[in-house]
Design a binder for these strands. Sequence first.
DNA 1: GCGACAG
DNA 2: ATCTTGTCGC
Length: 223
Amino acid sequence: MDVRRPPTWPATPQEALAEQDRLRPLVDLAGPGPQTIATAAGLDVTYAGDRLAAAVVVLDAGTLDVIEESVVEGVPAFPYVPGLFAFRELPALLDALEALTTVPDLLVCDGHGLAHPRRFGLACHLGVLTGLPAVGVAKTPLLGGYDEPGPERGAASPLRDGGETVGTVLRTQAGVKPVYVSAGHRIDLPTARRHVLALSPRYRLPETTRRADHLSRQVLRAP
DNA sequence: GCGACAG
DNA sequence: ATCTTGTCGC
């Protein structure tokens, strides 16, 4: 599939901040987004030494069967800086997406979307560069306050920052730590929450994320 | 000023 | 993210 690749990549935090400011207005926050999806793609990156492997796995959103996989090796494109995390793994993820034959209906990213200091986390960035609906699913919060959701599967509570709701804390499995869901691009929070829960029938993390994690690991650690 | 801080 | 032992549970 086609992706929009920036002509140059930021080399300093200042340049990265400027790039976020440039792209942030392009995030589509209108409409509810896709209520029905046929496919969903999970994206994840595994690190080993100074190398990394970025994987994308497209699943049938109904059966959760694998439809297509794509994985590439590479190097981190930026140091890890909270708030600028996307610049680290985006180039490799774009490579993996570009090799895809299928165009997924939704991107499930490993990190935040709007639940970000400048409301432009990895899921927003990937959404803008691909033009596809994107959601962020993170294992820990980057910012915001919230009340602990109920213990049952599906329980949720708003994630708030500076008076606005930037995401939802979602319990995908009974009695298990919740995940932090936020909208990335072309989808609203309720819809994102619904799709993430449907993609997580058995484990804490969505099946999309789990499949991508496994694929990137086996490729990077293979002899 | 002191911590916190996606992966 | 990754470095790591033991332990609990299906």
